[in-house]
Amino acid sequence: MMHFLSVYGLQLVGKTWQHLYISAISLGLGVIVAVPLGVLLTRAKKIANVVVSIASMLQTIPALALLAFMIPIFGIGATPAIVALFIYSLLPILRNTYLGMNDVDPSLKDAAKGMGMTNWQSIIKVEVPLAGPVIMAGIRLSATYVIAWAALASYIGAGGLGDFIFNGLNLYRTDLILGGSIPVILLALIVDWLLGKLEVALTPRTTHE
């Protein structure tokens, strides 16, 4: 292992950074699009099922196939990978946002409206804070998926820890496969743990102790 690190150490740091970078941008875009979309869907329940179905359908496209689809559109490199992973990140966030918002006690929404909150005020002051933990759970789930699948992105030249894994597969080098896989697993675990911390911080307090 020391040998592996002394030879590939610097490369490992670079690839990990690339991996993290691709994942973070995909997830970030996913949050920016899916959370507001999920919120909007609670105000347009008729189309909510259609949109959630479409997102579910996108989820069923095999990861490798989706990445391949991106090449004619975006060429090779990081961009097509980010777009593909972004699509994958949508569903869990979208679904959890929608369900979390819907699960907020209807009498609280009724009280908010009845006291004279606008639709927007009700969302910002009441519904999103109360749905926060559920939304965060969706983001954590997406984060884990995205980090795992980002390994495949090296297949279309996006770089990242997948490079080690694919090289290892091509060269029958177990140390390279492990050297790529273990950091991916560690990365996923660490990010999930950090987001867990964030979830606790964002969960609204309900006691003063």
Binding site: S107, A111, M115
Partner: peptide
Amino acid sequence: VQLRRKIGYVIQNIGLMPHMTIRQNITIV
């Protein structure tokens, strides 16, 4: 919206916001 701010509203399920303190709840309107 303006009308509702002028009319007090009390419901059966109480409807206090669980993530707000009593002070914040009282002064919502």
